[in-house]
Design a protein around this nucleic acid. Structure first.
Lengths: 147, 147
DNA sequence: ATCAAATGAGTGCGCGTGCACGCAAATGAG
DNA sequence: CTCATTTGCGTGCACGCGCACTCATTTGAT
């Protein structure tokens, strides 16, 4: 007989496995953007449009390596641009372009609607807040989000 | 300004991203078993030791395709055996071996300890139950994995 | 000023994964 | 019985992803 912690973990696994493909499919269907692209654009957009690879990797739930390649793809698509950091020759900035902002604003409502439908549907506001609070404890005090 | 649902989703993503590698590393360090192997053995063990690929794929959070290859690896390691289904020539059984059971029982406490530590530590019993209940709502109608 | 250590980033490589496809067996309508 | 359809599996292939490694730059101790 599974413990409470086990049950919670399995439920988390199943929830993750169910929701990620749903969101990915929905965003991609609506805008052609992979979910990972969206995430990068989101962070870039909400951080003034300019971040180093390392900062991005901290924000996005991906390895720094992956982010580096992701930025390459996004740059090839013209949604972000690579820029040198004048104060540190090692680091590189990823800067969101106007086109990137446009595509992001286009994709945002689709993603957000899907999230609200899948999470906000079954759960009340208070439940969502409680859920977030617990999950953040489990995630191990990560830096808070900025608007 | 993120909605409550957004914050919850991001927290879930971060929690998943943090915990999976931890558990995987810990189990692998302690027993040499990849986490996916453990999951297969777990389901097999708790289902009388014999399942078809399709049944396994429904249980484990993986595609049927992946399960098929996983069983191959486990069979090569001697932890499960492939067996023909006398009633249906298309389907194949995966049967856990004695050695597989032994390895599973060996790995179980390590995995469970890690879960209890990471989930049961920060969260109380009641919180865990509430968390599970909410997550199960989100996991929804346990939709079988698409392939 | 010097140089060893630390830091930020890019690359080679291999693994895990799912999709499209193919195949054989079972099913069912006629 | 016949044969088209469905079902359960396995395989070729491509992609996403992270680790180990390398390179260039910066930092800091002497």
């Amino acid at each position: 007989m599974p413990s409470d912690a086990e049950r919670a973990w399995e439920a988390l696994l199943r929830t993750h496995a169910r929701l990620v493909p749903i969101f990915d499919r929905e965003v991609q269907r609506g805008t052609g953007l992979p979910l990972t692209w969206y995430d990068v654009l989101l962070e870039l957009n909400s951080a003034g449009g300019r971040m180093t690879m390392g900062q991005l990797a901290e924000r996005v739930v991906l390895s720094r390596t992956r982010v580096s390649r992701l930025v390459d793809e996004l740059a090839r698509a013209g949604l972000v641009a690579r820029e040198a950091n004048p104060d540190d020759g090692r680091s590189a900035f990823a800067v969101i372009t106007d086109d990137g902002r446009r595509r992001f604003r286009e994709a945002a409502p689709i993603y957000l609607d899907a999230i609200d439908r899948e999470l906000g549907g079954p759960l009340s506001r208070d439940e969502l807040r409680a859920l977030t609070e617990m999950l953040e404890k489990l995630a191990g005090a990560r830096a808070a989000h900025r608007d």
